[in-house]
């Protein structure tokens, strides 16, 4: 316990916790909408684009967070257009875009020397080495994502629950899809230092999936997703410090364990609360 308490005194641990909680909040809120729209894998697809973005940044000596953010957000917009205009199935569009991103990343890595070591931090996550600048950017972006969700709350909920009726009520489904996909792009980039690009989808999907099994209404679903996400990140970080295991693996495995407990216990939010 003494060791755990002392960990909170370290600057790197405080930075990791702060960034992790900010990212966890954005991922949890967005994840509930994406899971309910049956679009959970969009995070995984966009993560592959972020990989190319990171490679571009490292190749040209830019901050990878910025290059990944730029490329991912632009590609997220293109992905929506491909889905809406070309009449391609949603998962096919994700496969197209993600394979393009990964191929581009591999090409850039192969053209440069010494990139591989740096890339590993983004692929598998390395939150304990996060810099103050990265924490600040992460918190600002997380705040933007949360604010957009708050101010578009009715539109997102209505268009997710009943797109046709929402359209009739004057809420354009295409605009909602576009906004949510862009937000997913931003959130993927936020999560890449926390759990890595290969696991970032877990931050969006696992807390949301657990919450959706317990909640009786949408308010509870959002609240529970945030509680699951933040507690999994906090406990996962502590476990990684105590047991000397990678933080990304700790957070995701803990999240998956919580999901299994929720699934098999059949626990539900009590009525009339």
């Amino acid at each position: 316990m003494q060791v755990l308490w002392s960990s909170f005194q370290y600057g790197f641990f405080q930075r990791a916790l702060l960034a992790g909680l900010g990212v966890g909040l954005a991922c949890a809120l967005l994840g509930v909408f994406l899971v309910l729209r049956k679009d959970a894998m969009i995070g995984h697809g966009l993560a592959h684009i972020s990989f190319a973005g990171v490679a571009v940044g490292l190749f040209f000596g830019w901050l990878p967070l910025f290059s990944a953010l730029g490329l991912t957000v632009v590609t997220a917009g293109i992905l929506v257009k491909i889905r809406q205009r070309a009449g391609v199935y949603g998962d096919t569009a994700i496969a197209l875009v993600s394979s393009f991103g990964f191929a581009l990343g591999i090409l850039l890595v192969s053209m440069s020397e010494g990139l591989n070591v740096n890339l590993f931090a983004y692929l598998f996550g390395d939150i304990l080495t996060i810099s103050t600048l990265e924490v600040e950017i992460s918190l600002i972006l997380a705040a933007v994502v949360v604010l957009v969700i708050i101010f578009s709350f009715r539109d997102f909920l209505f268009a997710t629950f009943d797109p046709e009726a929402a359209q009739v009520a004057g809420i354009p489904e295409k605009r909602v899809e576009f906004l949510l996909t862009i937000l997913a792009g931003v959130t993927v980039v936020l999560g890449m230092k926390v759990v890595g690009l290969l696991l970032v989808v877990a931050l969006m999907v696992i807390p949301a999936a657990s919450a959706l099994r317990v909640a009786r209404n949408f308010r509870q679903a959002l609240l529970l997703a945030v509680v699951f996400s933040l507690s999994e990140i906090m406990v996962g970080l502590c476990l990684s410090f105590l047991l000397d295991i990678p933080a990304s693996a700790g957070i995701v495995l803990l999240g998956f364990t919580v999901y299994l407990v929720v699934l098999f216990s059949g626990i539900r939010w009590p009525r009339r609360i």
């Binding site: 101010f151 709350f153 009715r154 629950f161 004057g170 909640a215 009786r216 209404n217 308010r219």
Partner: peptide
């Protein structure tokens, strides 16, 4: 065909969705 019965949303939330003036805190 038009909605997912597993969607966790209460009757109150379903009705309030169609209030043009509803804001996030009204759902909260």
């Amino acid at each position: 065909t038009h909605f997912d019965p597993l969607f966790p949303v209460s009757v109150r939330e379903v009705v309030a969705m169609n209030l043009p003036q509803a804001r996030w805190y009204d759902f909260w």
